[in-house]
């Protein structure tokens, strides 16, 4: 499916369920997302994780609402399943979309300025390095006798400083690789929006209305 349309579908669906307390709609999203993930051959372990990780916040929400709030089982269940709907919808997008293809799609299909598309991509590629750098800064300070705790502002001041230097170096590197803001670029891999992409987007969103409308009628 076209990455931009996939993102749109996930965002719209998530937005809609955040305004409704509809367990059936939530479950529909979880089931659809699961089918999609399985069709993309996601590992079973990853699927198990998706079930386990939201359990704590979901149970937290449930108990808060059911035992300490309105004591309405339907609302509590809706909130419990909504947590899973968010996680599965998000996973259906992130686990099946490469950031590069998304950037291409946003650039070509949504006409997002390429500066944002590639700037974000460069930042995304830097994330693992930022993580190791923070650890390095922490240990490097320790060897000078200074303990920087995980909540130390100094540590994050340093991390931000490093990120600023990197972003400037990256900007220089992008320019030296021929990137000019606002200048047209040729397209090596074309990301298309097919009729079936649009069909699926509309179809899935219409399907989601079914339980919501049905609940409204009863």
């Amino acid at each position: 499916m076209n990455p931009s349309l996939k993102l749109l579908t996930v965002l719209l669906a998530s937005l809609e369920i955040s305004f409704t307390y509809n367990t059936a709609a939530n479950l529909l999203i979880v089931v659809t997302a699961s089918i999609y993930l399985i069709s993309h051959r996601i590992r079973w372990r990853a699927l198990m994780w998706l079930l386990v990780v939201p359990l704590i916040p979901a149970v937290g929400l449930f108990t808060t609402i059911y035992f300490f709030g309105a004591h309405q089982l339907a609302t509590a269940v809706a909130l419990f399943t909504r947590m899973y709907a968010y996680v599965f919808a998000g996973a259906a997008f992130t686990l099946t979309t490469s950031p590069l293809v998304l950037a291409h799609s946003l650039e070509q299909n949504c006409h997002l300025p390429s500066k944002f598309a590639y700037g974000t991509l460069a930042a995304f590629n830097m994330l693992p390095k930022i993580k190791t750098t923070i650890l390095t800064i922490k240990n490097a300070a320790a060897m000078r006798g200074v303990t920087l705790s995980w909540w130390s502002p100094r540590l994050y001041f340093k991390a931000i400083l490093v990120a600023i230097t990197w972003s400037e170096n990256l900007a220089q590197a992008m320019i030296s690789h021929g990137f000019v803001e606002g200048q047209p670029r040729s397209t090596y891999s074309v990301v298309r929006v097919t009729a079936s992409d649009i069909g699926w987007t509309i179809g899935l969103l219409v399907l989601l209305q079914a339980p919501i409308v049905w609940a409204g009628l009863h």
Binding site: H177, G178, F179, P184, R185, S186, T187, Y188
Partner: peptide
């Protein structure tokens, strides 16, 4: 490499 050449508007 592809990114750099796209910037220079080289044909695919």
């Amino acid at each position: 490499l592809i990114f750099s050449l796209e910037n220079l508007q080289v044909a695919p």
